[in-house]
Amino acid sequence: MTAAGERHLVEAAYERVEDMRAVVEAALESGIAASQIEVRSPAPLEEDELPLPKPKSRVLLFALAGAVLGGLTAFGLAAGTALAYPLPTGGMSIVAGPPVGVVTYEGTALGLILMTVLRVLWEGGLLPGRGIRSGRGRASDLDHHVANGRLLLRVHGLSEEQAGRLRDSSRTSAVEVG
């Protein structure tokens, strides 16, 4: 489960976030970068529970872009196509405001919803072909701990020595170390 040559991966499952916190703090002090540390939890953690950088998300931005895109598409569909094939309406307007408004409204909502979900999946590496990079997001033998409500710490790209030290420090408080 190593990313490149001699790089090592250490995994440890914990019952309590406090136990994991101590190990993470020690790891950071010993010079391991925060970007090497991956935490898997059974439910969202509070921001200040671990001394790790907050993840960033652009879901909202993409949602708004999706809304604009969906709205324009729906508007074009309702108004543009009516103009492309103007059918006889007996003097009534071919592009009527309220119906186009209704369709645009629904298109806006649909665009927003679709883009939101796509962006969530993309950011989480859940879309096909994404996410399996440098061992992150890969299945782990310890994943069942997360499913059963425990926390899983994974530290990537360690040297032989770093890995050994981390394993030793984890053994006291972790449920299982891999």
């Binding site: 969202p44 993840p55 962006r119 989480g124 899983l152």
Partner: peptide, 10 residues
Amino acid sequence: RGTAQQWHSL
């Protein structure tokens, strides 16, 4: 997998 990024985006 329940990573921090996944939870945050979700």
